[in-house]
């Protein structure tokens, strides 16, 4: 009953669990289906757009950091400092510039994703053996073909490791966008916190985690498809390592 007054929304089909404010409430999912779907779609849009823009910005930054050694320090330093800015502060700071818009959430999340993406793309590219580069040059590869055809491909495992971390953290951070009503499922968590609506908070939280884990597994699958060699190598190396560990007295 507290719920009915606090959430200030007509309870069209008030199931029992809605009235008693239970944590798990199928009736909530049924009656607010559209709201949940909209929030999930917004969550997916915000996170995918953020990660994509982050990736598009991180690549040139990593290339610059690799090409000019002197720029590596500042590029990594600035992106690391961005990471220490709390998301609440980041979003609040962006509001006066961008207004109460989805671009606030996206901009904040892009800036966060840069830290991980730039670092991992750079590490991946630097990890390409010089011999491989020489061989490609010897085969007549130009700089662009060398980069896209050889270096990026060999760096894919490291890049994907970063991409997965960035994606999962982005999906979980979207929730903070709830303070400006552009946070996907975070909107529901924020709203549920104010009205102490248990089912709303729990359902939205669980959906968040499910989205993050699904995205992580999807990216892992894509990575396996793109780099079959890395997987095979890793497995055999793992096996070798496992035997040496076990061989210890």
């Amino acid at each position: 009953m507290v719920l009915a007054s606090a959430s200030a929304r007509p309870l069209a089909a008030s199931g029992n669990c809605l009235v008693t404010n239970e944590w798990v409430c199928p009736e909530y999912v049924r009656s607010r289906k559209q709201e949940l779907i909209d929030a999930t779609v917004q969550h997916l849009q915000l996170s995918s757009v953020s990660v994509l823009i982050g990736l598009l910005l991180a690549f040139p930054l990593a290339l610059v950091a690799r090409r000019w050694r002197a720029s590596a320090g500042p590029v990594l330093g600035v992106t690391t400092i961005l990471y220490t800015i709390p998301s609440l502060a980041m979003f609040s700071i962006l509001v006066p510039f961008l207004g109460l818009a989805a671009s606030v959430t996206v901009t904040g999340l892009v800036l966060y994703s840069l830290t991980i993406l730039v670092r991992n793309i750079l590490a991946g590219l630097q990890g390409v053996p010089e011999d491989v580069r020489e061989a490609a040059r010897g085969m007549g590869y130009g700089p662009l073909r060398l980069l896209l055809g050889v270096e990026v491909r060999l760096a894919l495992p490291t890049i994907f490791a970063g991409l997965r971390i960035a994606t999962v953290s982005t999906i979980s951070l979207v929730t903070i966008g709830g303070i400006i009503d552009h946070g996907g499922l975070g909107n529901l968590i924020y709203e549920g916190n104010q009205s102490l609506f248990k089912a709303e908070v729990l359902t939205a939280s669980v959906l968040c985690v499910v989205i993050a884990i699904t995205a992580d597994l999807l990216l892992l699958g894509v990575q396996r498809l793109l780099t079959p060699w890395a997987n095979a190598g890793k497995q055999s190396r793992f096996r070798r390592r496992a035997t040496t560990v076990e061989a210890m007295p």
């Binding site: 971390i165 999962v168 953290s169 999906i171 979980s172 951070l173 929730t175 903070i176 709830g178 975070g186 968590i189 924020y190 549920g192 916190n193 102490l196 248990k198 908070v201 729990l202 939205a204 939280s205 968040c208 985690v209 993050a212 884990i213 992580d216």
Partner: peptide, 18 residues
Amino acid sequence: SNVGRAVPTFAVLVLLLI
């Protein structure tokens, strides 16, 4: 830590508060 990263702190906080 992979799972931990997927769980939004904000959501955990609100759940625990309630």
